[in-house]
Amino acid sequence: MVGTAHRDTGIGEGVARTALMIAAARAIETHRPDALARDGYAEHFVLAARDAAGWPVRPEQVPDGDANPLWGRLARYFGLRTRVLDDHLLRSARTGIRQVVLLGAGLDSRAFRLDWPPGCVVYEIDTLGVLRFKQRVLDGLCAVPKAVRVPIGADLGTDWAGALTGAGFDPGVPTAWLAEGLLLYLPAAAERRLVDTVDGLSADGSTLMYEIKLGLESPESRDSPLYASAKEQIGVDLLTLFDEEPRPDSAADLVGRGWSASVRSPFDFTRRLGRGPLPEPRDALAGNHWVFADRPGR
């Protein structure tokens, strides 16, 4: 890779800014000797953004190391999530799926860093501001994707399905869908619409993975040092981004539509892989769960 692009004017506020937080976490994970996932592009996104000036991108830059609630424990969580979702997408591709859709792609670099089988197409849907920032950094690095990459600037609250099919997406073939850290921020009605749209666009043999919070944040978890640390260190109040409506049971909805679905705790994968966060008192991660759904082939 060549040098990092000049500092950008900014990626945006609110949920869009969390993409930089996740990129910083992936960068820190990348430089750990026991890294669960490696993303050589992540630190370049952080270093290019004015909004992230001074954020750590290596473990030795983190004050208090793993004891830091934000850049220690939460960053470990994002490293674990990245690894699990990387594995999930590559397993889907090995079953013959060649069409991948990243919903709310943010600063995801999977099109560039994963070893996709020949013929894979990766569609990345996010706002134009996020995608333009991302493209400027990637262009500065002369980055070359390992699959056909199709960025689509669209608001997931609007007719993103039309933009997706207009960009060449074929609803008649199996698709691997990924909504990483997206549904946490959507109102309940928007979550239902998204699941309905994905179902309508999914051929038999498709897969879907997404992250949810089961129930609303308890008063104890709202007092987690993780939330206070994020607000203090990077000016992101995560609690204000979570929708406060009761959450729909999208996994049950999918099962009712003929999908199979399993709901897993991230801590299951910490124990399986031997690294990552474990439960603790006043845990902001206690409600986080990952849903893996499959639409059986005929």
Rank of each mutant, 00 (worst) to 15 (best):
A53L: 15
P219M: 00
Y185N: 12
R272V: 12
A25W: 14
T197V: 10
R113W: 11
P187N: 08
A190R: 14
G96E: 09
L70S: 05
G256V: 12
W160S: 10
A19D: 12
Y123C: 10
A261M: 07
T95V: 05
G106A: 08
G129Y: 01
E124D: 15
V57S: 01
V150Q: 08
D196F: 07
N68D: 14
L131H: 05
R222P: 02
T197G: 06
F242G: 02
D196G: 13
A228K: 03
T9D: 15
R192D: 06
P56R: 00
H88F: 15
E191K: 15
P174C: 06
A167S: 15
A228R: 09
D170C: 13
G157D: 05
G258I: 09
D243K: 03
G12L: 11
D115P: 04
L201T: 05
S92W: 04
A5Q: 12
D66K: 12
A19R: 06
D204V: 12
L226T: 06
G256Q: 03
L47W: 11
T82K: 04
A251W: 03
G3N: 13
G10E: 08
S260D: 09
R136L: 06
A111D: 10
G200Q: 08
R192M: 03
A143P: 04
I152L: 04
L47V: 03
G79T: 06
Y210K: 08
G200C: 13
S202N: 06
P266Q: 04
A27Y: 07
S262L: 10
G256A: 06
V46E: 13
R38V: 15
G200K: 13
T270Y: 09
D249Y: 05
A24P: 10
